[in-house]
Structure formats: structure tokens, C-alpha cells
Write a protein that binds this DNA or RNA. Structure first.
Length: 776
RNA sequence: UGCCCGGUCGUCUAAUGGCAGGACAGCGGCCUUUGGAGCCGUCGGUGGAGGUUCGAGUCCUCCCCGGGCAGCCA
């Protein structure tokens, strides 16, 4: 944990960046992150991902992570949220190095803004909101300057000071960065930096009547705190260019860097503050902490554990692709965490009475373990057994379907931890509802008894009628009945799941729960994980009523069987057949759109005519002026123009990019020499590519480098054969796999030889030799 | 429509140009005094077309699809 660089592969691309920066020292060996919520709402499961990332990186790389309230908009923020945010993060199990507030930097933000004005990089715009929008242009048209853009530095400074002094009403002026009104990135079209807002701020009170915008405050806050890696979600991608502009123009080095990742989305869930507010204010849920809400407070009240949530965040990973995670992944994390720690108890949610006619009036006490054999945990409790019991109504069926393994007339079932009983009679009321079952028990079938090992198909849970505690049980399900609530023209409220909460007031739980800590997470056997609602539940049945929240159900494979046999008996088989009867079109060969013939420009035509390039090559070349120019410079010096074109088109650009070099600076003679080296077969393609990167920054002749370092191609069969044999001998398993049909491994073997010859093995010769060796 | 970003099993996510792997879900089996858990097995993927290369998920070109940006919100 104290190692700064993990020895294992980083688990996501951001951690890879952090490790790279730590390795090359570009952040001075430091890692500093921050979690920057705006205190205008409650944290939700999407924030859990960000929190786990920000705090997790600081933890794992010996870094620091600040909690910073991004409180630059006085009209929406409050101390209530500040407190809730801290509570939620702590509950999740993370601790910040510093609790900070962007509002504490207001004076610095202001001073830096004055400096920016002095530098001529910001101006006060007195246009109206509508004018500013109008002049900003659109995504296809550039913006135009307002008449205020050319104000003098002095005028800007005076106006800005007067704005601060409260001389103007809201909206009279704004401060804007003077960047580029024609930028293709809308965020760079002279972004607003300050607006006038005569509003009371929950922390700074009435000290300020101008407030900084996010794009000014956020990068500066990061820079002030010495943040190295500023992580945010994908929608801020376009803001990065502005972020960099701000820190470069307002702050000394080193500068923080922003990296974006995909926000977490869950199916059957909404995840925006706006929608949460609608849910709460519309009375569709009981509050921000309604156990059906994906808020941290809601999930906490539901009974989710911090560890489950952290594991979930770890499990979904971090990437840049927009994605939507299945609810099943979250449920799995919760079950996985609870399974080994939740004691098993019995609770009958929909009771029906059972009388065991051959059981004595005096009951007995059974010792029942809290955990099943596979958990391997000690502990048990006493469970009273009696002549009259309750079982789950759905565990009895008068005329059961084929694979029903529970109680039915004449059939046997085991009572968990107790006896095998057989149903000998059914009592019904006038409406035909079952009101009581008459059963007989096998006295020898008790755990440890002579026929204890007797097998019956099913085991059901139960409680003794006399001693059971009545309780309320709240059964939660997904809040929405569709995977994408609010998608399209529909109101997401209309798509709420009417069955998302079922309250059962007459459930019966075994009495042992009265002795347990109030935050105990149970598994109610065969039903799911439950705990006491922290707000509405008493501890025992004697003070306030017991109220249990269902945290999550158990996986229920019976439900699937029941669902599939709900229709006709052959439903299963038909379902299996369906796919093959209707195979999905693997590839419909008809091209969707005809291939566009590439426009052959005059320049391209010329390249084709004078150098014999293909149309594709010519077109590619002419699309980039610097590349086309390079080609023209290089081609007189090379043997084969087509090879030169391929190198310029395919191999050069990535090297240029990674070396941050411009094509125009390339020495044509050297480049030509390199191309010829490859073309004439003196060096391999691979060696050529490596040399390419090198000659961009040095002035040495490729031919001389090849000679002095012995980089010439190895095509001597004897030499290559020896190395191939070596590799084959060292990788017996792979050889076997290859011979077993895994032909893709040919790449592995060639790669190995390439590696050992440092890329100098002649590929064409090599492949033949490897195949020969492997196939013998 | 201009710019930016993205597209790998049903879902999420890996793969210095060299074995397309893991998790969840599904299916099947074993085990089981929870139709739970566990164990084993299995199904299943590089959006498309060209190009470069001995070798492409990865590099180049074009196309298709998805997301973001035109708040004095963050």
C-alpha cells in the first residue's frame, strides 16, 4: 500500500496515466486528486464511482485527495448539502486530506481576474444575455465580437472593480476571457468568467456580488491546491481546452491536468438531481433517502453496505466509452458482500396456518445454526417449534405443476432445521381461500434423528404460531419498469414501477431477532437480505413495531422455472428452438451505402501520373499538405515512390504525433535513405520504424546507424532455425496448443523470435521456418 | 450541420502491433436440510469497407452508429 507504483497492471486508463506520470516524474512524484461536488443536492451511486476513483487513487499511490465544495453559485447551494455530502463520503469509508471550499478562494479568483484584464486577456462585456448568445454564433457559424470587446484595459479594470463594488444590477455586465470567437470549440468563444449576482452566499454571506463561473473557478482551485490529476466526467471534455487556457494564463507551473471518464449510468434508474427533485417534491418517493432512491442516503437506508458499494464501483471499471450498467451488477455486489456476514433467520411474509395433528401440545426448542455449512461460521440460536406453525402461503399449492418441490396434498416437505411433514388436509373459507393446512410429521426426521437423512425434494421456512413476532416488511423493487426511464417523449414519472414498494404489515419473524444489534443484516431464508429500517423500526416487537427493509432478494431460479412453464408445457423447448429457426443475420452482404468514389483532385491526379501512386495513396497524401510536401521532397531521392508514399501515409504520422514533430522539419535525404534501406531489404520493416523515430530527432545517417549497430536483417536460415528451435523448446505447452489447433499462436512464436533478434529477423523467411518447426 | 470524444461477448471491462481474456447475466451439471451459496462446464464479441504489415481489436483512409458542446449552471 505504501508503494507508489503497483507492480500489477493498472486497473483502468486513469491509473495508467498516474503510473506513467509517477514513473517519468512529470508531477514531481506527487499525486493529488480532489472530489469537487457542488453542494446543491445529495450524492448518488454515480458519485460513488467518482469518489472511489478520486480517493482510491490517492490511497493507492501515496497521494492526497481533497474534498472541495464547488460552491460558486450562491443561489442553489446550502450548508445542509455540505453536511450530507461529508456524511455520505465518510459512510462510504473514505476520508479527505483537506475539506476545502471554492468560496474560500474568491479573493484569489478576483485578483487573478484583474491580472488577466491587465494582460489584455479579459474584458467586461455589457451586452445583454440575448446579445451575447446571438453573437456567440452557432456550431456551424463563428461568433462575432460585441462592441465592448475592444474596451481599453483601463476601462475594463474600472468596470470590473465597480461590478465588484456593487454598482450594477444583475446582468448589467459580465467578465469574459478574450480568446477566440471563431474557435470551433464553443467553450473557447470568449467564455464568461464572472457574472453579477446580488445574492446571499451560504458561506461568504454578502461579501460578494460577483461570482466566478465554473470554468474560471475550477481550474484555478485545482492549481491553488496543487492538484495533479483533475478527474471529471465526459461532458467536460470540451472544457478541457479552456481549463488549460485558464491555468496557463493565470497560474505558474506546474499545472494540473484534467482527465475525463464515463459517468456511471444504471438501467431502470434515473440519475439526475433534476429528476430526483421531481420524485421527491412530487411525493413519488418519501424523500432523498427513500430506500428506492439511488442516492447514497437512500441506499444506506435500504441496507446496502459501504463495502458492497465500493466493490461495485471497483467492478464496473473506468473507461471513456458511454455505458449503462445492469442493475444485476449492483445487486450482485450487495449479495456477494452480505452472503458471508448475514445470519440466517426465518420470517414468514405471507403466513398460512399449519397444524401438525400428531405433534404434542407441548412444543420444543430447536437449535438452529446462523450460517450454512459453506460459510463456515459458528453461532446458533434457539428456535421454538410447536404444533401450530405458519408457513409461506406460496409454499403450498393444491394442484402443483410438474417441478414444484414444496407442500401439496399428500406430499412431503422438510421444515428447515426441523421435521419432515406431510399434508393430509386443507381447510378453506367460503371463498375457497386456504386458511389452514393439516399435516403429520415424522418424529424421527429431526436433524440428528434416525431418519434425518431421509431426502425430500423441498425445504421450507416457518415460524411457530405462538412465539412468532409480528412485524412489518417493506419489499423494494426497481423504481422504474423500463430500462431507460424518460427516454424519448415520455415523462419518466409515467414509467415508475407501480410495484416498487410493497408493504406487508402482518409478517411473522422468529423471536430470536429481538436479541440482535439493530443494524444486523439478516438473510431471511429463501427470501432475501433484510435489516431494520433505521428510521421507522423499533428494536423489538414490544416497543415500536419491527420494520424490516428488504435490501435485495436472493437469486431465485424457481421464478424462472415458474415463468417459463407459465405458458404451455413446451414453452422451454420452443424457446430453445427459436434462435436457430430465426438465425440472426450475421452479415447481410448488401452494402448499406455504396462506397463513395473518392474525389480525385488535380494534385492527386498529378501524383498518380508522375509517380505511379495508387488513387488511395494519392488521395491520402493530398489530404495533408505537410505530408504531400514531404513526399515531393523525398520522392526524387528514393528508388520506389510507392514505398515512400506508404511510409509517409502509414508509418510516419503516429511517430510524428508521439515525438511531437512537424513533417516540414524532416530531412528528406535521411528519410529517403531509410525508406530505401527497407525497400532494398537491408533492414526489416520493424527496424525501419524504430529508426524512423530516431532520425526525427538526430542528424545521423540511417545507413551509418545500421552499419555501426549491426541492425541489418537476419535472413540466415541456420541462425534463425537455431532461435526458432530455442523458442519452441522453451514453450512446450504453447507448441502443444498450436498443434492442437490453436493456430493463432503462430504470432506468439514469431513475436518471440522477433523479440530475440530485436526485430531483425527476416519475417518472410521466419514464418516459413516457424511453421516448418511447429508442424513437424 | 462545425468541432471534440467514443464503438470489443446480452451488460461492464481488459489485451508494449504477436494466445481476443475477466466479471455480471444466461444455459447445463455437481453439491446442498435455503429453488440460496459454492464448485465445474458452456454459450457468446472486435460496427463496416479498403490499406499498411510476416502478423491489426490496436496503425492509416473512408463510411456507419452513439455521446458531448450554442446557461450569466456545474
Amino acid at each position: 500500500m505504501e508503494t507508489s507504483i503497483s507492480e500489477t497492471r493498472p486497473t483502468n486508463f486513469i491509473r495508467a496515466i498516474v503510473e506513467r506520470d509517477l514513473a517519468d516524474g512529470s508531477t514531481g512524484g506527487r499525486v493529488a486528486t480532489r472530489f469537487p461536488p457542488e453542494p446543491n443536492g445529495y450524492l448518488h451511486v454515480g458519485h460513488v464511482k467518482a469518489i472511489a476513483l478520486d480517493f482510491g487513487i490517492a490511497r493507492d499511490y501515496n497521494g492526497r485527495c481533497n474534498l472541495r465544495m464547488d460552491d460558486t453559485n450562491p443561489t442553489t447551494e446550502s450548508v445542509e448539502y455540505v453536511e450530507a455530502i461529508q456524511r455520505d463520503i465518510r459512510w462510504l469509508g473514505f476520508e479527505w486530506d483537506n475539506l476545502l471550499y471554492a468560496s474560500d478562494y474568491f479573493q484569489q479568483f478576483y485578483d487573478l481576474a484583474e491580472k488577466l484584464i491587465l494582460d489584455g486577456k479579459a474584458y467586461v462585456d455589457s451586452s445583454t444575455e440575448d446579445e451575447i448568445r446571438e453573437l456567440r454564433g452557432t456550431v456551424t457559424e463563428p461568433g462575432r465580437p460585441s462592441i465592448y470587446r475592444s474596451r481599453s484595459v483601463q476601462a475594463n479594470l474600472e468596470l470590473f472593480r465597480e461590478m465588484k463594488a456593487g454598482k450594477y444590477p444583475d446582468g448589467a455586465h459580465v467578465l469574459r476571457g478574450k480568446i477566440d470567437l471563431a474557435s470551433p470549440n464553443m467553450k473557447m468563444r470568449d467564455p464568461l468568467l464572472y457574472r453579477i449576482r446580488h445574492a446571499h452566499h451560504y458561506r461568504t454571506g454578502d461579501d460578494w456580488c460577483i461570482y466566478p463561473m465554473y470554468d474560471w473557478a475550477h481550474p484555478l482551485s485545482d492549481a491553488i491546491e496543487g492538484i495533479t490529476h483533475s478527474l471529471c466526467t465526459l461532458e467536460f471534455e470540451n472544457n478541457r481546452e479552456l481549463y488549460d487556457w485558464v491555468v496557463q494564463n493565470a497560474m505558474p507551473s506546474p499545472h494540473p491536468h484534467q482527465y475525463e471518464f464515463a459517468r456511471l449510468a444504471l438501467d431502470y434508474t434515473v440519475m439526475s438531481k433534476r429528476k430526483f427533485i421531481q420524485l421527491v417534491e412530487g411525493g413519488h418517493v418519501s424523500g432523498w433517502n427513500d430506500p428506492r432512491m439511488p442516492t447514497i442516503s437512500g441506499m444506506r437506508r435500504r441496507g446496502f453496505t459501504p463495502e458492497a458499494l465500493r466493490n461495485f464501483a471497483e467492478g464496473v471499471g473506468v473507461a471513456r466509452a458511454n455505458s449503462k450498467t445492469e442493475l444485476a451488477a449492483l445487486e450482485h455486489a450487495v449479495r456477494d458482500n452480505l452472503n458471508p456476514i448475514a445470519p440466517r433467520v426465518m420470517c414468514v411474509i405471507d403466513p398460512v396456518r399449519v397444524v401438525i395433528t400428531n405433534y404434542p401440545e407441548t412444543g420444543e426448542s430447536l437449535d438452529a445454526p446462523y450460517f450454512p455449512h459453506d460459510i463456515g461460521k459458528e453461532g446458533s440460536r434457539a428456535v421454538p417449534f410447536a404444533r401450530e406453525l405458519f408457513i409461506e402461503r406460496e409454499d403450498f399449492m393444491e394442484s402443483p405443476p410438474k417441478r414444484f418441490h414444496r407442500l401439496s396434498p399428500g406430499q412431503e416437505v422438510r421444515l428447515r432445521y426441523a421435521y419432515i411433514i406431510k399434508c393430509i388436509g386443507v381447510k378453506k373459507d367460503a371463498d375457497g381461500n386456504v386458511v389452514e393446512l393439516r399435516c403429520e410429521y415424522d418424529p424421527d426426521s429431526k436433524s440428528g434423528g434416525t431418519s434425518a437423512g431421509r431426502r425430500v425434494k423441498g425445504t421450507i421456512h416457518w415460524v411457530a404460531a405462538e412465539t412468532a413476532r409480528s412485524c412489518e416488511v417493506r419489499l423494494y423493487d426497481r423504481l422504474f419498469s423500463v430500462p431507460d426511464p424518460g427516454e424519448g417523449d415520455v415523462d419518466f414519472i409515467e414509467e415508475m414501477n407501480p410495484g416498487s414498494l410493497k408493504v406487508v404489515t402482518n409478517a411473522l419473524v422468529e423471536p430470536s431477532v429481538e436479541n440482535d444489534a439493530p443494524d444486523t443484516r439478516y438473510q431471511f431464508e429463501r427470501q432475501g437480505y433484510f435489516w431494520r429500517d433505521p428510521e421507522d423500526s423499533g428494536t423489538t416487537g414490544r416497543d415500536r413495531p419491527l420494520v424490516f427493509n428488504r435490501i435485495v432478494t436472493l437469486k431465485d431460479s424457481w421464478a424462472k422455472v415458474a415463468a417459463s412453464s407459465a405458458g404451455d408445457a413446451t414453452a422451454d423447448k420452443q424457446r430453445e428452438k427459436a434462435p436457430s429457426a430465426n438465425p440472426k443475420p450475421k452479415s447481410d452482404k448488401a452494402p448499406r451505402t455504396p462506397i463513395q468514389p473518392q474525389a480525385i483532385t488535380e494534385g492527386a491526379r498529378k501524383l498518380i501520373d508522375s509517380w505511379g501512386l495508387s488513387e488511395t495513396q494519392a488521395v491520402s497524401l493530398t489530404e495533408d499538405a505537410s505530408l504531400a510536401d514531404l513526399f515531393v521532397r523525398v520522392v526524387p531521392e528514393v528508388i520506389n515512390p510507392a514505398v515512400a508514399a506508404n511510409w509517409i501515409i502509414n508509418e510516419l504520422p503516429p511517430v510524428l504525433k508521439s515525438a511531437d514533430v512537424d513533417a516540414s522539419t524532416i530531412d528528406a535525404n535521411q528519410f529517403a535513405e531509410l525508406i530505401d534501406l527497407v525497400d532494398e531489404g537491408t533492414i526489416t520493416n520493424l527496424t525501419g520504424k524504430e529508426l524512423l523515430a530516431e532520425i526525427l530527432t538526430t542528424n545521423e545517417s540511417p545507413r551509418r546507424i545500421v552499419a555501426s549497430r549491426g541492425l541489418a536483417v537476419v535472413s540466415d536460415t541456420g541462425e534463425l532455425r537455431r532461435i526458432v528451435a530455442e523458442v519452441v523448446a522453451e514453450n512446450g505447452e504453447k507448441v502443444e496448443a498450436y498443434r492442437g489447433g490453436k493456430k493463432g499462436l503462430i504470432g506468439f512464436f514469431i513475436g518471440q523470435v522477433m523479440h530475440r533478434t530485436e526485430g531483425r529477423a527476416d519475417p518472410a523467411v521466419l514464418r516459413g521456418l516457424v511453421e516448418e518447426e511447429l508442424d513437424q
